[in-house]
């Protein structure tokens, strides 16, 4: 029986999550908000991985990749938030528009 839901549906969901995450990263001025956007982007990518894993002959490779992505996302969140705390200590703010010491 041909299912009504196919690979493209999942890819579309992944794409939407990715785009919303990207938007979040681009427009947020709160550093924690930016990090949340990154998490969304990674989730979008992960949906694609798992979907590919399901709809292809490559067995569970996609799932394994998504597990690694989740692992790295957790690591990234831990380090990112630690950085945010460190930045907060020196700037007393986590607004990315305030941190402009790189300005030329």
């Amino acid at each position: 029986m041909e299912s009504a839901i196919g690979l493209n549906h999942f890819l579309a969901v992944g794409l939407i999550l990715f785009c919303l995450g990207l938007f979040c990263v681009l427009t947020r001025r709160n550093a924690i908000g930016v990090l949340m956007g990154v998490e969304l982007i990674l989730n979008g990518a992960n949906v694609n991985y798992v979907a590919f894993s399901k709809y292809s002959a490559a067995a569970v490779d996609g799932q394994v990749f998504s597990v690694f992505v989740i692992m790295l996302a957790a690591a990234e969140a831990a380090i990112g938030l630690a950085l945010v705390l460190a930045i907060y200590r020196s700037f007393r703010a986590i607004d990315v528009s305030v941190m402009r010491t790189l300005r030329g």
């Binding site: 990263v25 528009s97 941190m99 010491t101 790189l102 300005r103 030329g104």
Partner: peptide, 18 residues
Amino acid sequence: AARKLQTGGINAYLYVLV
């Protein structure tokens, strides 16, 4: 003029990247 590209703001860098 080129100096203005280096705004120091992270969003600007992200835009360039994307």
